[in-house]
Simulated assay, not measured.
Amino acid sequence: MSNFAILITRRQFAITATATSRTVAQRVYVGKPDKISNIRPLAILKNKNDSPLETQLKELQMDTQQWHHKFWMNHNKMFSKSREEFDEKWFAKKQVSSSNQSETTKMLEPEDMAIFHRNFLHNNLEAQRTYDREWKTRNKKLLFLSAQVAFQRFYFKWFKSFFSRKS
C-alpha cells in the first residue's frame, strides 16, 4: 500500500501530493486558484518508467484540467458581464446617480438578484447541460483508465513478487 505525504512549500504555496511506492512515484502539484475561473492548476509530473496506460491517463487528466479551466473562465466572464449589465439597468430603473452607485451596490434587493440568477441560468442552460454531459464522459474515461492503471500496477507487483519467490 502507498504512503501519502502532503507537503506545503512556502515559496510557491503549492501542495504536493506524493504517492511513494517501490515501483512508481507520482507527483501532482496544485497551484493557487485562477482569479477568473477559480480552478486550481495541476502539474502532473511524468515519470520515465510510466507505462503507456499511465501516460495516457496523465495526458487525459491534464487535458480535462485545461478544459475545465477554459469553460469556467468563459462562464465566469459571461456572469460578470451579465451582472454589470443587470446592475446598470437596475440603477437606471431606480434612478440612482453614478456617484451613489458605489454606496448602493450593497443595497440590491434579494428579489432582483434572484431574478438575475434565474435569468442567467436559464439563458446558459444549454451550455451547462453540454458541460455536464462532457464532464460525465470525461469522468468515466478517467475512472476507467485509473482502474486499468491500478490493476496493471497490482498485477505487475504480484507477478514480480510471485516469480521472485520461486527463483
Results as ranks from 00 to 15, higher is better:
Phe13Cys: 08
Ser164Gly: 01
Leu125Ser: 04
Phe86Glu: 02
Glu88Ile: 14
Lys32Glu: 09
Gln128Cys: 07
His69Asp: 15
Glu59Gln: 13
Phe120Glu: 06
Gln66Lys: 14
Met113Gly: 00
Leu57Tyr: 06
Arg129Met: 15
Lys48Arg: 11
Thr55Lys: 09
Leu60Phe: 04
Phe162Leu: 15
Val28Pro: 00
Leu145Ser: 05
Asn49Ser: 15
Ala17Val: 12
Ala127Met: 10
Lys35Phe: 04
Asp50Ala: 06
Leu108Ile: 15
His75Asn: 13
Glu84Cys: 06
Asn74Asp: 15
Glu134Phe: 04
Tyr29Leu: 15
Arg27His: 12
Val24Asn: 05
Lys48Ala: 14
Phe71Trp: 08
Met78Asp: 13
Phe120Ala: 07
Val28Ile: 12
Thr105Ser: 11
Ile6Pro: 00
Lys48Asn: 11
Phe159Glu: 11
Leu108Arg: 15
Phe71Leu: 12
Phe116Trp: 09
Phe116Asp: 02
Thr18Arg: 11
Asn76Ala: 11
Thr64Cys: 04
Asp87Phe: 11
Lys32Arg: 14
Ser164Glu: 14
Asn47Gly: 03
Leu45Ile: 09
Lys32Gln: 10
Leu142His: 01
Thr55Ser: 08
Ser97Asp: 10
Thr20Tyr: 08
Lys35Ile: 07
Lys77Asn: 13
Ile8Asp: 01
Asp132Gly: 01
Met1Asn: 10
Arg11Ala: 14
Ser102His: 10
Thr9Gln: 09
Asp132Cys: 04
Ser102Val: 09
Glu126Tyr: 05
Glu109Val: 08
Thr20Ile: 11
Pro33Ala: 09
Ser102Thr: 12
Asn123Ile: 06
Arg10Gln: 12
Trp90Val: 02
His75Phe: 13
Lys94Asp: 03
Ala19Asp: 06
Ala5Trp: 01
His117Leu: 15
Arg153Leu: 14
Ala114Met: 08
Leu108Ser: 05
Lys141Phe: 04
Arg133Lys: 11
Pro52Ala: 15
Gln148Leu: 14
Leu42Pro: 00
Gln12Trp: 03
Met107Tyr: 02
Ala25Ser: 02
Val30Ser: 03
Leu53Asp: 03
Tyr155Ser: 13
